[in-house]
Simulated assay, not measured.
Amino acid sequence: MKRLFGHLNNEPIFEYTIFNQNNHAVSILNYGGIIRKWMAPDRDGHISNIVLGFETIDEYVASSPYFGAIIGRHAGRIDGGTFRIEDKTYSLAKNDGANHLHGGNRGFDRHLWQVEQDDQRLTLTRTSPHMEEGYPGELDVRVTYELTEEGELVITYEATTTETTVCNLTNHTYFQLGRIGETVAAQELTMMADAFAPIRKDSIPTGERIPVEGTLFDFRRPRLLGTGFHKLDEQLEHAQGGYDHPFFLSETDEPQATLFDPDSGRRLTVKTDAPVLVVYSGNQLDGSLTLKEGKIPQYGAICLETQHLPNEINEVTTSSAILSPGETYRTRTTYQVTTD
């Protein structure tokens, strides 16, 4: 289904909705590839939205903290807004203090995408011009969203370039499996990750790899998210009282992360071939955003962003985020919602 969502600079913004036979419906905008709604049943069959989203395009332009958007060319922060490839330094927008964040002042989240719909699949494409936001190479990007009958939203990212560049794509959906307007403190997170990347005060990963054993970052067994909120821990303080950290995922055929809401019975699993999962627990949400469902408090949702390690381009000589001509960037992530 396709409907007009609004206009931006006289350009029509459309919302596309894909359905399955089990009462799931996912709505996606051609602006930013934004996942605006995911309607899903709880254990009692009551259907409600499980992601944060606005009702108008003006709200997305004015105040969205990347709600549901495709993030690129590079997810996360890049130290000082610079990186080097083949002895050449590139300068990017510094849109997060002294650093570069989520693709710059006008990243992929703020562009219109071409959309083709084929039943329960959407294919979004755009070409990022050479030196857009300071990134070298013309980058052709294809992102597909497919909703299965099993409640899986499968996201596939592909990209090719005309010059050696960096590419690190993700989706920035804010999940709230319970009631929008409440916090995720009572939801349980499980993650197959033996180590995490500590961050500096400006949220740049230090490049270290710290074992989770004996820390507030150990989610190898189910743990309430709220047990880490506002704790006297330097790393949590760097992230404004919660999580905004990359976790190094174990290689497995099983889902690497599970989020469970005991009240609704909804369970979200994440399976990916990306090496890192950035967990962001909505620490910077402060009640100033009002959605259709109400005001969004701190910790009002959680983002589970699959990607390569942010700022890796400045930490190692052979970053996995480097993409060269003739290569294809490709990652795949499956978010599945079921009920207990």
Rank of each mutant, 00 (worst) to 15 (best):
L232Y: 00
F248T: 05
L236H: 14
Q240P: 01
E237I: 12
R209G: 03
H230M: 07
D261I: 14
D233T: 01
Q240V: 10
R209N: 11
Y243I: 07
R220C: 06
Q256T: 11
G207K: 09
T252S: 15
G214K: 10
T258S: 09
G226F: 05
G228D: 03
L236N: 03
D253W: 01
H230Q: 09
D218P: 06
D233W: 05
F217A: 08
L216A: 13
D263Q: 15
T215N: 11
Q256M: 09
G226N: 08
L249M: 09
A257M: 08
L236F: 12
R209L: 15
Q240Y: 13
P211G: 07
G214C: 11
D233F: 03
R223C: 03
R223T: 03
L224V: 01
G226S: 10
L216K: 09
G241K: 10
F248M: 11
E234C: 04
L216D: 05
P262N: 13
A257H: 01
H230W: 00
D233R: 05
G207P: 08
F229P: 02
R221S: 15
R209C: 13
T206G: 12
E251W: 00
L259K: 06
R220W: 08
H230L: 04
P222T: 11
L259Q: 05
G226P: 05
L232V: 00
L232P: 00
D218L: 10
H238T: 07
R209W: 07
L236V: 12
P246A: 15
D261Q: 14
E213P: 02
E254T: 04
G242C: 10
L225P: 06
E213N: 13
F229I: 02
G226K: 09
I210M: 13
G226I: 07
E213T: 12
F229G: 03
P222R: 14
P246M: 07
E251C: 00
A239D: 05
G207F: 09
P255F: 00
H238F: 15
P255L: 04
F260S: 14
L225R: 09
Y243A: 13
Q256A: 09
G207T: 08
L249D: 04
G226R: 12
L259P: 02
G214H: 13
K231P: 00
P255M: 02
L225A: 09
A239P: 04
E213V: 06
G242T: 13
E213F: 14
D233S: 07
L225V: 08
K231F: 00
A239M: 08
D263S: 15
T215P: 07
E234G: 02
L259M: 08
F260L: 15
L224D: 01
F229M: 02
Y243R: 09
